[in-house]
Structures are given as C-alpha cells and as structure tokens.
Amino acid sequence: MKALSIKNLTKTYANGNQALKGISIDVEPGDFCALLGPNGAGKTTAIGIISSLVNKTSGSVEIFGHDIDSDLEAAKTHLGLVPQEVNLNLWEGVANIVRTQAGYYGLPRKLAEERTEKYLRELRLWDRRNDIARSLSGGMKRRLMIARALVHEPRLLILDEPTAGVDIEIRRSMWDYLQRINAEGTTIILTTHYLEEAESLCRHVAIIDGGEIIEDAPMSSVLRQLQREVFVLNVDGELREAPVLAGFETSLREDGDLEVVTSKDRHVNDLFAELDRNDIRVVSLRNKANRLEELFMGLVENKPGAEE
C-alpha cells in the first residue's frame, strides 16, 4: 500500500487552463518526498486535489489505500496539510485554532487538549497559546499551521512551501523537526523553492512542469544525472587571469575568486593536483549553485516545448 498513489490526474479550470495533464506519482510510506516545479507548474493544484480543496477533472487519488472518491472521510483522516498561504483565523487564539482543528477530526476534548499542548510545545508556541494568531510573526504562523496539521497525527503530511519567507534559524529548526517526525514514521511531501532544502531533506523527488511530471526518482539517482559541477575557490594571493588547469574549465570572477567547472568523470583530487602544479593555494571552496537547482533548471529548460 502506498502512502499516496496518484494516477492520471488531470485538472482543467473553468477558464480553460489545463493545470494538470495526467500526472501519476507514487509515494512510499515513510518517504520524504520533494514535489518541485516552477511557479504555475501545477504543484498547488495537485496538493489542492489531494486534500480535496480542489475538484479534479479526472484520474484517481488514494491516500494509504483510501480513494478520495469512494472513501474520502478515511482518506482525509490520514492527511495533514500545511498550505502555502497563511489560512489561519487571525482573530482566534493560538491554542483555540489547534484545539478546534482537533475537534473537526473528531478527537475527544481531553485528547484534543493534550495534543494541542504537545504540538504547541514541540513547535515552541506554548508560551503564545493565549495570543491571537494575528500577533504572531511570520515564522510563528508557519509553525502554528504545522501544529494544526499535526494535531490529529496524520500518517501523511503535505507541506506547501512551509519555509517561504522565514529566517534561516527558524527554517533550520523546521527542517530538524520535519526530519524528526519523518524518522518517527510520518510520510512527508514537501514543495519548496529552496532547492537546497529539498536536497538536504528529501529522499525522493518529483519535478512537475506545465502540468506534467518530468522527473520522478530517488534523490540520489536524480543527482547522479548531473554531468558537471561548478566550484568557487577563494585562493591565497591575487590572480591576474584564470589559470589553465588541464581538464577543467576556469574563469576569474569579478570578486577575484576562481570559478572551476568539473565534469562528472573527474575527481576533486585531480583538481587539487592541478592547482598544486600551478602553485595555487586554496583558502576555501564552495559550490557555485545548488546541485539540485542546476539539475532542475536543466530539466525545465530542456523540456520539449520549453520557450527559447
């Protein structure tokens, strides 16, 4: 049984926009899956259909074996959703929001109280439990939406850009928390524009563009497709021009750092050997672009029919 099984899902909006053109995705229980794609690719529409906020045109969706057409109530019981946009009642108290959501899932009052405290504490919102949601910062609102989505302890949690607009510290703490609940058994599907987030968190990646799935594979095998990698080297001393390193493309950046392109079949050791041979000492080294980002751009740009 799959945590999520989508078959030939299509969605055409009333204005004729075909947002999904027959996508199929399977997500295994316990997986941490990234659903990536440019703006307007169809990610949010797909999530809307899975969570029954959007009516599908055709196709099927099963959540832990429960079809959303024939067994919607059970399917919804297994699903938690953290939407892209803040959809909190901003005038409602923090604890009330979580407790009310527990009630909508049929949790008895006492259990609802316990879970509310548990998740508000875990997401570091317990001290703000009596404040209205409007008074929370952007990051706190995001954490409150996660607490609300978890209060019925769903087996599948979908997060639609949960870290958009939050600072790096909160983002890191959210990553830690998501990794923890994933390790405890919650299947997670994440959409994000921060591809380093997807690369570091997710074991599976599906890329959607123009309403179609253009990649659906384990993260490791997707990253293996990368044919090249670009490093930026901060070197000791000043280089007047880019050195010629056998087997590597080099260029000098405006800030004086050295940019080196390596191909998939070369080792980084070879690069350092070449640098040694040219008497260049490296102070620090970093990736120019996130690897997944590079791959993502390549896939989207090379897609048949992509605009020139």
Binding site: S52, L72, N87, L88, N89, Y104
Partner: peptide, 12 residues
C-alpha cells in the same frame, strides 16, 4: 480568510 479550509480538509 481561507480558514474554511480547516473544515474542508477535515473528515467532518
């Protein structure tokens, strides 16, 4: 305010 989604995603 879109918090109607709290009800719509739930099994009620």
């Amino acid at each position: 305010g879109r918090h109607i989604e709290e009800m719509l995603v739930s099994p009620m």
